[in-house]
Design a protein around this nucleic acid. Structure first.
Length: 178
DNA sequence: CAGTGGATGCTCT
DNA sequence: GAGCATCCACTGT
C-alpha cells in the first residue's frame, strides 16, 4: 500500500464519467493508530477488510463523505484516502453538485471531492474496476510532494501524504522542501 | 492573510 | 459523552 499510494498520483479516477487526475492521497495501514482499521473490523469499516480494489466510503464529521481505495498489505486492512483531484471530465456536473463556480474548489479536499463526484454510502464496498467507477493507471511518473497527513491527531507526523508537485488543486499546499 | 467556532451523525469508550 | 481522515462562514489584524 505504501508502494501503491505514491503511484496513484497522476492516475485518473471517474465516477459515472465525472472525475479527473488524482493529485493528493494519504496512506493508512493496519499498524497505524490513525487508521480506521487499527482497532479491528467493525460495521463501519468492514469494506476495508474486504477484497482490495474496492471502495471504502465513510461519513466524516457527520456531514461529509470520504472515499478510500482499499489495498492489501500482508493480508491486513489498509487503504488510501483520496483527498483531491484535478477535474478534467464532467465539470458541469461538479459545478451543479458543489454549487460553486471555481473548478479549484470542486475536488480540493476529501469531502468536496465526494460531493463533486456524487460519492456517498451507496458506493461503500463497490469494485473500482467496473462502472460506475473507472480507475486508470498513470502513464508517466509525475513530480511528487510528500508530507504529514491532514487533520489527524494520532501518528500525525508520519509523512504518508502524497501530492502532485505544483498542482493548483491540492486541499492544502505542501511545506516547502528544506 | 490567520484564527475560531458551528453544523451534524455516527462510532467507540 | 467524547471525538472525529471536514468544510464554511465569520471575525480580526
Amino acid at each position: 500500500m505504501h508502494e501503491v499510494a505514491p503511484e496513484l498520483i497522476g492516475a485518473t479516477l471517474f465516477v459515472d464519467g465525472v472525475g479527473g487526475v488524482l493529485v493528493e492521497v494519504e496512506a493508512y495501514d493496519h499498524e497505524d493508530p490513525a487508521a480506521h482499521g487499527y482497532r479491528g473490523c467493525t460495521e463501519r469499516n468492514a469494506s476495508m477488510f474486504g477484497p482490495p480494489g474496492h471502495a471504502y466510503v465513510y461519513r466524516s464529521y457527520g456531514i461529509h463523505w470520504c472515499l478510500n481505495l482499499v489495498c492489501e498489505q500482508e493480508g491486513r486492512a489498509s487503504a488510501v484516502l483520496v483527498r483531491a483531484l484535478e477535474p478534467t471530465h464532467g465539470l458541469e456536473s461538479m459545478r451543479a453538485r458543489r454549487a460553486l463556480d471555481d473548478p479549484r474548489l470542486f475536488c480540493s479536499g476529501p469531502g468536496r471531492l465526494c460531493q463533486a463526484l456524487g460519492v456517498d454510502r451507496a458506493f461503500d464496498g463497490v469494485a473500482l474496476d467496473r462502472p460506475p467507477f473507472e480507475l486508470r493507471a498513470r502513464v508517466d511518473a509525475p513530480g511528487l510532494d510528500v508530507g504529514p497527513r491532514v487533520g489527524i491527531t494520532r501518528a500525525a507526523e508520519l509523512p504518508w501524504r502524497y501530492g502532485l508537485a505544483g498542482s493548483r488543486f491540492l486541499s492544502r499546499p505542501f511545506r516547502r522542501p528544506a
